[in-house]
Write a protein that binds this DNA or RNA. Structure first.
Length: 510
RNA sequence: GGGCCGUUAGCUCAGUCGGUAGAGCAACUGGCUUUUAACCAGUGGGUCGCAGGUUCGAGUCCUGCACGGCUCACCA
């Protein structure tokens, strides 16, 4: 017996057996609908009672039963297609006898088909006057509470199906996420970008500084890594002559979970030949204002306690300016103070922030930025002028090789995008990889491995290019006003459920 | 991995000072032919996350474990 069996499931199984005994197939194939519930609501939702009576609209519609009101020899059944609801009105003396008996054996959560004519009740609600009921499927397990939904956060993630049945908000967030991705595709397609798919299994886990998931290819007898980033493959395509490409797909990083991190997450990456990171700031403003307008219908959206405005232009700060701006206490440093290692160390000391002794100027500046500024970047803000040490794939700034032409976009305190003018000098790229290898040798397991074929690709010649990655999940968090990434990922990663206790020795299965 | 918090009926939640386990919804029985979280009357339903300990007595106190949430660390 299944672990979920109890008095409720047993009662429902008896009802199912009774339904079959009445001659209704217990799990029939298909149902010939004339409309979905949503289509009926959209088409006839405003139609007057008189108009409905004149038209005598006959429909066949199906859905999951949400609520039942029985009044002796008449009843209302509220059912849903997931998006909209409709009620059926039943009278015992107007239905085939078997259909009324079927009705008596229905449970909340079951699927039914209803054939009848649309009308309005005396309280004005659009309804189907049922002439024929069809049994479509049984819910053996009762649905969550019909008023309070499914509140248990663990069950909402583990049994997303139950969450989606019970909680309209959950469903709405995922619909919004889907529309967001649709709007992104529309934006890039309209600009002549080519959507591509690059490998998810990589022989080398490069393109981002992150610990990979490792697997094994049996036939080739070699390790493979679930990709941490598609970057190096997409740039190979720029070398190959596609001038504008984008990919929306999963990345995998073998790191901690949090409200902002899931081991697999969805990334949009796009690359455009002849563009610079500054062009991409403009493009990102255009992209997100268009997406927000299409998905939310406004330029301003709520996020937690804040209200986020996507009105352009968005603020732009260098990393150093952001640290100065959000310095939390007395003795605020100046941008000039943060120009060298000694100044950054003084700032770290003032805030009593610990850093790894091996960290150089760039990592220390980045740490300072993360602690001081990042949580405060609620309105869309571009942070520019990243240290080269943190950016092994980005082109150095023309005025200072210690910095690169890079920005990150923060919204709601979340890092939502990362972009730079690409390093396309193969010799410089090799030196950058070798620096990373040296850091790895010093014990930094976050350093990025060298990809020799990628360097060879650059040697074939890559045009000046800029590229960007946008975290789809985090963007979905902002647009749906969710504070946890698990609320915008349908099946977020959780530990496995504890195995069920073994059955009692006396219990015999027939 | 650390800290704090949580786990009670199918679901949502109470449970006081350690003294017989509660409610609403759901379910079951009966009534009701236009209800709106329908209503009326009645009934059944518990491994209080798991395992120990303290105690005459543990849902309640203590310890360990599991799972989850928040957070820190790690990490974009």
């Amino acid at each position: 017996m299944e672990a979920y069996e109890n008095e409720y499931t047993q009662q429902r199984r008896r009802n199912l057996a009774d339904i079959a005994a009445l001659g209704f197939p217990p799990y029939p194939a298909g149902y010939d609908r004339t409309h979905s519930v949503s289509e009926i609501a959209a088409t006839y939702g405003e139609r007057s009672a008189e108009a409905l009576e004149d038209e005598a609209v006959a429909v066949r519609v199906a859905g999951r039963i949400q609520a039942v009101n029985v009044m002796g020899k008449a009843a209302f059944i509220r059912f849903t297609d997931g998006a909209a609801t409709l009620q059926a009105y039943l009278r015992k003396n107007e239905l085939p006898e078997a259909d009324w008996l079927l009705f008596k054996r229905l449970d909340l959560g079951d699927f039914i088909g209803v054939a009848g004519k649309l009308f309005r009740t005396k309280t004005g609600e659009l309804s189907v006057h049922a002439e024929k009921l069809t049994f479509l499927s049984k819910a053996i397990i009762p649905p969550p509470d019909k008023h309070y939904g499914l509140q248990d956060i663990e069950l909402r993630y583990r049994r997303r199906y139950a969450d989606l049945i019970a909680n309209r908000d959950a469903r709405a967030a995922f619909v919004k996420r889907s529309r967001m991705i649709q709007a992104i595709r529309h934006f890039f397609d309209a600009r002549g970008y080519l959507e591509v798919e690059t490998p998810m299994l990589h022989p080398i886990a490069s393109g981002a500084t992150a610990r990979p998931f490792v697997t094994r290819h049996n036939a080739l007898d070699m390790p493979l890594y679930a990709r941490v980033a598609p970057e190096l493959y997409l740039k190979r395509l720029i070398v190959g002559g596609f001038e504008k490409v984008y990919e929306i797909n999963r990345n995998f990083r073998n790191e901690g979970l949090s409200t902002r991190h899931n081991p697999e997450f969805t990334m949009l990456e796009f690359y455009e030949a002849y563009a610079t990171y500054e062009d991409l700031m403009t493009l990102t403003e255009e992209l997100l204002t268009e997406v927000v307008a299409r998905v939310c219908g406004t330029e301003t959206i709520p996020y937690g306690e804040a209200t986020i405005s996507f009105a352009r232009p968005w603020r732009r700060l260098t990393m150093q300016e952001a640290i100065v701006t959000y310095w939390p206490q007395e003795s605020r440093p100046t941008v000039a103070d943060l120009a060298d290692l000694a100044g950054v160390n003084r700032a770290l000391e003032r805030l009593a922030l610990p850093v790894a002794p091996t960290a150089g100027y760039g990592k220390r500046l980045g740490e300072l930025f993360e602690q001081v500024a990042e949580p405060n970047l609620i309105q869309p803000t571009f942070i520019t002028r990243f240290p080269t040490e943190l950016s092994p794939l980005a082109r150095h700034a023309d005025d200072d090789p210690n910095f690169v032409d890079r920005f990150e976009l923060f919204i709601g305190g979340l890092e939502c995008a990362n972009a730079f003018t690409e390093l396309n000098d193969p010799d410089e790229q090799r030196r950058r990889f070798e620096q990373q290898l040296a850091e790895r040798a010093r014990g930094d397991d976050e350093a990025m491995p060298l990809d020799a074929d990628f360097i060879r690709a650059l040697a074939y010649g890559m045009p000046p290019t800029a590229g960007e990655g946008i975290g789809i999940d985090r963007l979905a968090m902002v647009l749906t006003n969710q504070r946890s990434i698990r609320d915008v990922i349908l099946f977020p990663h959780l530990r496995p459920e504890a195995p069920e206790a073994p059955p009692a020795p006396a219990a015999k299965t027939p």
